[in-house]
Design a protein around this nucleic acid. Structure first.
Length: 363
DNA sequence: TGAAGACTCCCTCGCGTGGC
DNA sequence: GCCACGCGAGGGAGTCTTCA
């Protein structure tokens, strides 16, 4: 193992350092291969040939190494890393996702390998130690992520260990239960901050309206951010989400209650916001939870509004297929929804009214 | 305040299995 | 051999926290 267990979080988490290390993914391999490279104090390597072998890539790289036991080493080249990221670029993944994979790969290369002129070399023991450290330091889900992208890199590099890497299956599910009372208490808490001048009028109204809109429509925070106010059909209480506005790239329609309709209209009348902008952005929704300790220490977050929608729909015995359609859940394996249970927008809204028509929070 | 880091959520894919 | 089904792995976007 090349790094100390405690060293994983700090050096890589240092954003400046990790940003600098991104040169890994842009550099092309031009240097002579492994000339007089040293891997570890006890192991000396030197180039013994530059002939490209058509067979196993790892054998080829090992053939370039003059070591006592070449088979115990695994080699990752910058070209392998470039190939990994070429795939992401070709797919057009988001910058955030690319960065998160870069972070995982950089962490591995830095902590578990030795770099010599554009080559990253490690042993099985290095890998085992690294994985043990990861497993004991981070959550299961983050450990799983690491396994996923290391496997991908190993496959590209022709490292057979890829097929031996298995991640634990368990993962954490946020099973927070959210009721009308929970949301009422939350609003009271916000109002207490408002009264004590910790919340400006507009901020309070924007925050509460946005939270309730998500609670009654089932929209995600990111979806709320992508819908300009002018695209909300206030009169009919409908929101048509386009492909670029949803997480799943599927269009859908969702609805909101009369109470939220009144809140939205009041907000617009009172503050005259830019109708080309959304009701609230993600930072505007998140910041109060960081800034205000009483909000920070309670259980609800913006994402729980969508959970409330799903849970309250069930508590009121709403139709499961319609819930899927309103929330934008996949119906790929739902034969009923896919082939038989089709609904017009009016029918969906009629069902919505039956279930959520009397839903109110502010009494 | 924005970006990075550390997760969480949930959709899709692929493979194994069992019934016909 | 085909098909339906279930399940776990893979994968990528979303969300929240931390940091400079």
């Amino acid at each position: 193992m090349c790094g100390s267990p405690a060293g994983i979080r700090t050096p890589v988490a240092g954003s400046k350092a990790s940003r600098k290390s991104h040169h890994l993914f842009n550099k092309t391999l031009t240097e002579p291969l492994l000339e007089e490279a040293t891997i570890a104090p006890q192991s000396t390597f030197s180039v013994i040939g530059h002939v490209f072998h058509q067979g196993n890539k790892q054998e080829h790289y090992r053939s370039l190494l003059s070591v006592q036991n070449p088979n115990q080493y695994y080699v990752i080249t910058e070209e392998d890393i470039d190939k990994l990221f070429l795939e992401f670029e070709a797919k057009g993944v988001t910058l955030a996702h690319k960065r998160s994979v870069e972070y995982i790969i950089t962490m591995f290369l830095k902590e578990a390998t030795k770099e010599t002129q554009g080559k990253y070399i490690f042993t099985m023991k290095d890998l085992k130690d690294y994985l043990n450290t990861l497993r004991s330091t981070y959550s299961v889900s983050f450990y799983r992520k690491n396994i996923t992208y290391l496997k991908k890199l190993f496959r590209i590099a022709g490292i057979e260990l890829a097929e031996s890497l298995k991640a634990p299956t368990e993962f954490n599910v946020d099973s927070t239960i959210v009721t009308v009372d929970d949301i009422n208490q939350f609003i009271q808490l916000v109002d207490s901050l408002h009264i004590s001048n910790h919340f400006e009028d507009q901020k309070r109204d924007q925050f509460v309206t946005a939270m309730l809109l998500m609670a009654v429509s089932g929209m995600r925070v990111s979806e709320l951010e992508r819908v300009p106010l002018k695209e909300i059909d206030f009169e009919n209480r409908r929101i048509y989400l386009k492909t670029y506005q949803t997480k799943t790239r599927q269009t859908r329609v969702t609805f909101f209650t009369q109470e939220v309709q009144e809140l939205l209209e009041d907000y617009i009348r009172t503050y005259n916001p830019n109708m080309n902008q959304p009701l609230a952005t993600i930072p505007q929704m998140q910041r109060p939870f960081r800034r205000k300790s009483s909000l920070r220490n309670q259980k609800l977050r913006p994402k729980h509004m969508r959970k409330f929608f799903a849970q309250e729909w069930d508590r009121r015995n709403g139709n499961a297929t319609i819930k899927k359609l309103l929330m934008g859940h996949s119906i790929r394996y739902d034969i009923n929804a896919l082939h038989y249970s089709h609904h017009t927008v009016d029918e969906l809204q009629e069902s919505y009214e039956k279930i959520f028509g009397d839903l109110r929070f502010l009494r």
